[in-house]
Design a protein around this nucleic acid. Structure first.
Lengths: 209, 209
DNA sequence: TGTACATCAGTGAACGCGCGTTCACTGATGTAC
DNA sequence: TGTACATCAGTGAACGCGCGTTCACTGATGTAC
């Protein structure tokens, strides 16, 4: 039940902090359960249950680190999806689909990310400055939102994010199976859902409130 | 730490099942934490930790019962909001706001409801037949969705529900504080968010895809 | 270059905890005669 | 109406568990002289 690396590891690990975060991610991915224990993470890293306390104040600090990595990965994947996007397609929808795909592929990590945010009652600052939030704003502006209307932009970003989160958490329900089949697969289904939301439509067609 | 009723309760309770569900709701409301234990519920009901097993197969069955009650209450509140709605206002938005208000007022219960659904990978059947889901469909039809286009209706309902869930889970973030203040309070904020989503707009203005 | 020593990053045992669930039991209730 | 008895719905003690965290410890490392 230990990682191969543990067997030959010297007394001093080198970068246990990193190793713990990696072990945590691995557990989250493997078990699909967001309720991981500090002890399980230490075990996975091949280290005693007390060792993590030299690198994290407590369990929640480890979870925060895991969440932060998750947000990074999400932003990277959203950016990649936008970059890979063919001309003429709806970039807002593409972004939303990438968001949901990440959450679907990494459900436990996504839940940890979100739980940490709800816990602190705020999302990591990094999101605003260089992460997914900024990406959302940029894409909104691209798609026609007035960049000088701060309130309008914030409101639009909030709505987009809420919608994406809601879709991310709900699409795994069996209720949508028929719809998904009828529309021809996951991606088509997600695009259809997002396309129901005005914000995700091309700017030219958007109504003025 | 026991309920007053426990002190004078006869050996046979009468309706312990009901009492346990009520105790559970009470705990969820009081602690705001969705992670309640079977033992805590029994304690709250003034009964031994083994007693619940005469009424529920295991802990998850108790949680399911709590979730079901939650869905009932949600449907009731949504219906009430629609009934109280002044003429001329956007009923879809009103419904969404009611949904979110319920989730905000009963966060732990809402989380239990949702967790149970994700657990079973499906929502309670009751929702479709007589609960909140049916209400959503009715309101969509009222607001102009073609009732004979089953796929369109399902898709719209899915999108509405996803959006409402996303908003419900995210609005408690501090990020939205400025926006909320600027717009003049919780309700205005929620209406603004929902109004960003085409589906929540009056039918007359909706674009044809 | 060698040595004393402070510091760092691990160990492993132990703490107290609350949990879900089971078990043999017992008090209360209802029913058949 | 009274009584034997089956059934029901509780009790309370116990099970084994894994958890987060602390503690005194020790092995390894790096630095000052």
């Amino acid at each position: 039940m230990q990682t191969a690396a543990a067997e030959t590891r010297p007394y001093h690990h080198g970068d246990l902090r990193r190793a713990l975060v990696e072990a945590g991610r691995h557990l989250l991915e493997a078990e699909g359960n967001a309720d991981i224990s500090l002890r399980a993470v230490a075990r996975e890293a091949g280290v005693s249950p007390a060792a993590p306390y030299h690198h994290f104040r407590d369990k929640s600090e480890l979870l925060d680190a895991l969440a932060l990595e998750g947000w990074d990965q999400l932003a990277t994947e959203m950016r990649a999806a936008l970059d890979a996007d063919g001309a003429g397609s709806n970039r807002l929808v593409t972004m939303g689909v990438a968001y949901v795909n990440f959450a679907r592929a990494n459900p436990a990590i996504y839940r940890v990310m979100f739980a940490c945010s709800l816990n602190h009652e705020t999302m990591p600052e990094k999101l605003r400055e260089e992460g997914a939030y900024k990406l959302v704003c940029e894409t909104l502006i691209e798609s026609g939102i007035d960049p000088d209307d701060e309130i309008g932009l914030e409101l639009a970003a909030a709505a987009v994010w809420c919608a994406a989160h809601g879709v991310a958490e709900m699409v795994s329900l069996k209720e949508f199976e028929p719809l998904r089949n009828h529309l021809g697969g996951e991606d088509a289904f997600l695009r259809a859902i997002f396309s129901q939301l005005d914000l995700f439509r091309p700017a030219s067609g958007r109504r003025v409130a």
